[in-house]
Amino acid sequence: MSAERSILLSFATLIGLASLSSAQQSLESAFRTTGAEVVAAFDTPRQVLQTSSAVIEQGRTQLAYGMVVSSDGAILTKASEIEGKTGLTVRVDRQAFDEVEIVAVDPVWDVALLRVDADDLVPVEYIDEDAGDLQHGTWVVANGATSRLARRALGGVISANAREIPAAGGAVLGLVMEVTDDGVRVEEVVEGSGAERAGLEKGDILVAIDGMVVGIPEDIIEAMGERSAGESIQLRYLRDDGEHDVEVPLIAREELFAEQMMTRNDMMSGAFSKRRSGFPRVIQHDILSNRSTVGGPLLDLDGRCVGMNIARANRAESFAIPAAEVREIAARLMDGEENS
């Protein structure tokens, strides 16, 4: 799928719109698909959003939504939206929690497990395990804007086939390298990359990657092979004080070079998620969310959880992790928590 090659919709000019105004009729906003009168029909799922979705904030800034997965305070959210943030607060229904612990992160799915001190939360109820993928055109409901006390719902439909979204531009370390007499030397560490997080610096000499000796930069490209964003590789490097082993998390090239890789479709899309590719499997729907309304549950008309909203890809495409995978991720992250 080449977004850049697609023919772009032309922008209507204001003059063009103004010239139509005499003969046109317009639908009041309350009756539009996202309007209050239409949204009122989603009352059952809205009740579930009220009790089982979470609002994650830092001060007055809303960062993301979350979904409650246990009565004793386990909440899933989108990891990259809260990464590096401190002083998080979480609101569920009418309760507010200022002590929030980031317990575990699944970097492949970009899901974080948060823990708040509670014992009476209402976890989401998943659809039947053997339900399979929802048919195209089936109603789904997700978080819209929120007030302090009330969650709002937005409706949409399943838009396309469930599928993998490969890391845009492939998975990268975030290193610019140069071949020197001493070996492959780091020329630059890209800001925000896994290499930077792992502590690599300009001048380090790369010795081995996943146990394989590095002779030329192509060795690294080969070792990266079919790796996905979210996975890590073992890197051994040489610095003045000797050899060091580190684990370097891989991220999507698009995430690292977001600005340089903006397409015209992106420019017409407003606030899309920073991490919006590199998911093993997603369902796609047309609920018009924005970056900070991602992370909450995706519900059916009965209010059962059919997925977890994980990315706003652009102005017209939203991705959710399917229920079966969310269930597995939640169980695995909570299990790891118990064992640690």
């Binding site: 046109q24 639908l27 698909t33 949409g156 399943i158 838009s159 396309a160 047309d286 017209a316």
Partner: peptide, 11 residues
């Protein structure tokens, strides 16, 4: 890709 909506303006 399918998307659902309403006709909100007619000119």
């Amino acid at each position: 890709v399918v998307r659902l909506g309403r006709v909100v303006r007619i000119a």
